[in-house]
Amino acid sequence: MKNVRPILYAWFALLTLLALTIGASFAPLGPVLPFVSYAIAIAKTVLIIWLFMEMKTRDGLQRIALGVGFAWLFILLLLSFADILTRGWLGA
């Protein structure tokens, strides 16, 4: 049971981030808000993956196995939004 402390720290950090993301949504951030929200969500995910899912102690292959899903999701979003965000640029 040597990993109890990191798990508890991570849990505490996660709840802090949760409070932060709720608080940020009420701040007058305007168009910056999504970036703050998703940055916090990514930070939470990193904590969960690294400490709860134990990727910290896993070999490269296992990290790739999990990471590849996120990487390919990034490809999907990046190239789809290359269309969706630029569609109005012509002939608006």
């Binding site: 993301t21 709720i22 949504s25 929200s37 969500a41």
Partner: peptide, 11 residues
């Protein structure tokens, strides 16, 4: 963790 800001916190 991602659904929450996407659905609830877009202000």
């Amino acid at each position: 963790v991602f659904l929450y800001p996407t659905l609830y916190l877009a202000r």
